[in-house]
Design a protein around this nucleic acid. Structure first.
Lengths: 150, 150
DNA sequence: TTTTTATATGTGTAATTACACTTTATGAAA
DNA sequence: TTTCATAAAGTGTAATTACACATATAAAAA
């Protein structure tokens, strides 16, 4: 198999320009850096903020249920809860029906969430302003479409 | 600070439904699983495929240049090249001008890339078909917009 | 009742990501 | 020439992601 320089450049451009996976990962890296930075004042990473907010839903969701809501591998969720649990922001119940364990946000967790909320809203607003309302809405719509494929 | 159940549900829904960072990360996880699976036949992860393809561009890009192209932290790129280098798919030159090191794709790397290309193209086509042409194009357009913010 | 199946969680391992900090080489300025 | 600023890379540490595999519980079927 021969790859001259032209073909290789074409290939590199095709992948970088047209690969949905590459581009969405690149966007995720960028937005994560932005939101991580914005949430520093609450000492939370972007993912941790999402987890904390999602865990407040309903009546203490189980690990599997929470993973399902978040579109996250169950084992990934379990690892991601570790740092939050070590800091006392959440608590995981002992095993219940069919080994099920439930996640609850502690008082400290709720306080942290309260500190993080205005920082997150500000980050959202800044990004929305930078992108413009049309692109902001379109971006969200397309992300929703993709995530519904799961 | 008091959080009753209604407010907490509102919060969870607001973040899960409107957070650009959360949604783009969710989409990245989903597409990564899909592309990782599709590329298994070439024994490449999605990220490794992107790296390999990007490294074929031009005349042996430096580490920093490659990181810039990929919108990836330099240190992240360095770590990600590790597995590819250990498998002999790429080679990194010794330090040159101002410590610069250049990345080249080996013959083995090019062969692996050749095996991966049809798998990647098939994955692209499947996703495009599932999403529909309009959403596929719109999704790409919006990802392009976001990535240009970097 | 025993066996099987479905549900739910935990662990080993490895890749991906990135900040903070350090080290080294080159060029410019004093 | 010495000093200082710039460019490039490497390391420590920790979080995020997920597959493969193991374990434990409860319900259903044989």
């Amino acid at each position: 198999m021969k790859f001259d320089t032209d073909i290789r450049n074409q290939l590199a451009n095709e992948v970088a320009g047209a690969c949905a996976c590459f581009k969405v990962r690149q966007a995720a890296r960028l937005l994560t850096r932005i939101y991580d930075h914005a949430l520093k004042g609450a000492d939370l990473r972007a993912t941790q903020f999402s987890l904390l907010a999602a865990a407040t839903v309903g009546d203490a969701p189980t690990l599997s249920h929470l993973a399902d809501i978040l579109g996250m591998e169950r084992t990934t969720l379990l690892r991601n809860l570790g740092p939050l649990e070590r800091r006392g922001l959440i608590a995981v119940s002992p095993e219940g029906h069919r080994r099920a364990r439930q996640v609850t946000v502690t008082q400290t967790g709720l306080q942290t969430l309260a500190r993080a909320l205005p920082l997150w809203r500000a980050a959202q607003e800044r990004l929305r302003a930078t992108m413009g309302e049309t692109d902001w809405l379109g971006f969200h719509r397309h992300l929703g479409e993709v995530n519904r494929l799961a």
